[in-house]
Nucleic acid binder design. Structure first.
Lengths: 284, 284
DNA sequence: CCGATTTTGTGCACACGTTCACAAGCGTTA
DNA sequence: TAACGCTTGTGAACGTGTGCACAAAATCGG
């Protein structure tokens, strides 16, 4: 959702739609603000889901916030707050029922209905994505592949024939594709994006290093290898510098501590892990 | 998962919040640290760098914060604040010199010295990564590949022979690998991670859907396809629900606006775009 | 040399997200 | 049944990041 620059909060309607829960605790400080799960929390919910699924597979029936938190790499307070966005599904003094949590999170994340996916750009990465059939466990079936290369058109990749990108609007509309994944060279990305939007795609996962322009009703998320590496590079540099100039203020006793730290979760600005797929093969 | 004796809780070292413990609330961070660039800003700097490089290639000499901001998909105030972390390299009434900004950002991100990269797990994704020779433009040369599969060992991928993961510590130490990329199945990830750490790798980019345990001096970033998709799924669900229950508060005047929205940048928790590589081919 | 114009740099206020700490609720045991 | 221990749910403090608005440079025109 586009966070509008001029401070106009989009009309987040009150319809909360918890199945059994009646009135939510409307703590609105502004008007009509029922409950909106923070973006950061959504990302973590996905991680919890993966961990919970694994636990369920091992026969666990209940978990405490403490257990789940440490397995997910966050602190328990944050976890409880995140779960509280779903409603009150825990039992004080006991913990959470794994089954219940799983289905609540799935419902909240909209995983109860399949979201069909299209991959555009069948290069190295696109190929990998297309072959990752069924995608994360289940729930995200890849139903269309596109590219410009004439040599690729018609060739089946991962069981699906590649189609031409000019057909994107038609095919996407017809197959009701919900999510488009862009894995094209940067130059082609915006054009592809426009076609996806024309085809009624609601969300885009963009691997191309470009800032896409989209209508406000389309959600875009970006994954950018180069940026990830550069951020890491920054940290390397910062540490090196710290080590050099290091004396005075920096006695960093813990610097070389080999304990399994992982405090504050994996550094990733708000992302996290996956889900289910307890035993499958290669990642992507 | 009963709590009982199952003290899976690893030796949570000093650092911070252990549950129910009076811990030293040392604000060590504050000491002497005049400037610490916020993580979020670092991610954006990488985007600015890419945009600036493109501009430089087109012969631009100066940019205003307004121009650069809109090209990068952020607002100009934020951009100026971000740049101010580097120091004062702008000229009031004029703007910024492209060359200067580029080199300042490169310096800050530690791109002045090459960071060598190793890729572990030569499956679909790993293959794609390995072939993406030279990586983002330049600056991140891939210098080692690893896998467990005996059939792969010795096979050259993207010009480099694949080595066995047991050799990770030795090879990484020898080649002074700075960044390790994990593209293995989830089950293998932690083991690989440990080996990378043993090899002296300082940063890890993790594509496996697992929460890695690492010593506190190692930086980890995670890229998780499943989570990305689930976040998008959440938004689809939220919109659908909004549309159904939609009336009352929701008059969404702008809902279908086709304007090049994209304000506040691409939703991605703090990530962004890439850099240079003005004319190359397939992404990854 | 002065004023008009442009654009940076930043103080400030606000919103968001994280962490703390504790009352409320549940199960168990005496 | 009452008291106790455990764990959730959340109000409130805190910290960080974002956006606004304006004073401070710098250039240009007269």
């Amino acid at each position: 959702m586009a966070r509008s620059g001029n401070g106009v909060e989009p009309p987040q309607p009150p319809g909360d739609g918890a199945p059994t829960a009646e009135l939510p605790k409307v703590t609105d400080r502004a008007v009509g603000r029922a409950r909106a799960i923070p973006e950061a929390a959504v990302a973590r919910l996905a991680v919890y889901l993966r961990v919970l699924s694994a636990m369920a597979d091992q026969g666990a029936v209940t978990v405490s916030s403490e257990e789940l938190a440490s397995a997910a790499g966050v602190n328990s307070a944050k976890l409880r707050k995140d779960l509280s966005y779903l409603g009150s599904y825990g039992t004080r003094g006991v913990g959470y029922e794994v089954e219940v949590l799983v289905s609540e999170i799935e419902r909240t994340l909209g995983l109860t209905r399949k979201q069909t996916v299209a991959v555009v750009g069948i290069g190295n990465l696109g190929h990998a994505l297309a072959n990752y059939a069924g995608f994360p466990g289940r729930g995200f079936p890849v139903e269309a592949l596109f590219d410009v290369d004439p040599d690729l058109i018609g060739v089946p990749v991962g069981g699906l024939p590649v189609q031409h990108i000019d057909d994107i609007p038609k095919v996407c509309a017809q197959k009701r594709i919900a999510i488009g994944i862009i894995a094209t060279p940067p130059a082609a990305a915006q054009g592809v994006c426009d076609r996806l939007v024309a085809g009624g795609v609601q969300c885009i996962l963009n691997f191309a290093p470009v800032v896409l322009q989209v209508p406000s009703h389309v959600e875009v998320r970006k994954v950018d290898l180069a940026v990830e590496l550069q951020i890491l590079s920054f940290h390397v540099a910062r540490k090196a510098e710290q080590r050099h100039a290091g004396r005075s203020a920096a006695k960093r006793a813990e610097r070389n501590g080999r304990a399994p730290a992982n405090r504050a979760g994996q550094r990733n600005g708000g992302r996290a892990t996956a889900r289910r797929t307890p035993s499958n093969g290669e990642v992507v």
